[in-house]
Design a protein around this nucleic acid. Structure first.
Length: 212
DNA sequence: TCGACTATTTGTT
DNA sequence: AACAAATAGTCGA
């Protein structure tokens, strides 16, 4: 069953890069792009990672409060990239997420700043220990990069794995958070969270972000 | 390094 | 609805 959402695409340019944010009629964030070279690329990526289970109707006119939410999101990303620790002041539209996706994102959002875990550990925590690849796939489609810190998930051998915004960006985000990445592209074991610890953290955190 | 194996999603029929 | 293809991975030989 498909729900329908009336959506608006908010686009903004910061430091020469474009960011697109898709916002629904209830002012919740459907998805966003990472900073891109052109407006078209940004919009394309935001649409691509919007939850597939929902069909979207796009409107170009948006009211001032919707525009304000868009500004807040872009400002959040912008200040995060600059090394600040902005607060989340907006809601995410999580309605169309599959159970699997919801669990994966909830766990990932409980990884604290300054730590990483691996794809297999996330799989283990959702009691689906062989689903490491599926976890990677789910994260590749993360509708809310940076807000849900999928850059904190690396391979079990401590090399970086992948990132939609490119590995340089993953590196940079981790560096900002105090996670050293060696020249060979590995994170230090000191920052690594094992599955057991990750499970405890995700239990404590609940699923705040993902229950709007 | 290479292959076998995995779970899920997406695209195609 | 069913099937095939594609993965931001992992483990062992």
């Amino acid at each position: 069953m498909k729900t329908v959402a009336q959506c608006f695409v908010y686009v903004s340019k910061i430091d020469g890069k474009w960011i697109a944010v898709i916002i629904d009629e209830n002012e919740r964030i459907v998805s966003l792009s990472l900073p891109k070279g052109s407006e078209g690329e940004a919009v394309y990526e935001a649409k691509r990672v919007a939850v597939a289970n929902v069909s979207y109707k796009f409107r170009s006119e948006m009211d001032p409060s919707t525009r304000r939410v868009g500004r807040e999101v872009v400002e959040f990303i912008n200040s995060y990239i600059k090394g600040d620790k902005p607060k989340i002041t907006f809601k995410l539209n999580v309605e169309g997420l599959t159970k699997f996706m919801n669990k994966v994102l909830a766990i990932v959002s409980s990884i604290p700043r300054g730590f990483v875990t691996c794809y297999g550990c996330v799989a283990e925590v959702i009691e689906n220990p062989y689903a490491c690849r599926a976890v990677g796939r789910a994260l590749a489609m993360n509708p809310w990069p940076i807000i849900i810190p999928c850059h904190r998930v690396v391979k079990s051998d401590l090399t970086l794995g992948g990132y939609r915004g490119g590995l340089d960006m993953k590196r940079e985000l981790l560096r900002i958070e105090g996670v050293a990445v060696t020249l060979a592209g590995r994170v230090l074991p000191a920052h690594f969270l094992e599955a057991r610890r990750l499970r405890e953290l995700s239990r404590d955190a609940g699923e705040k972000l993902l229950t709007s």
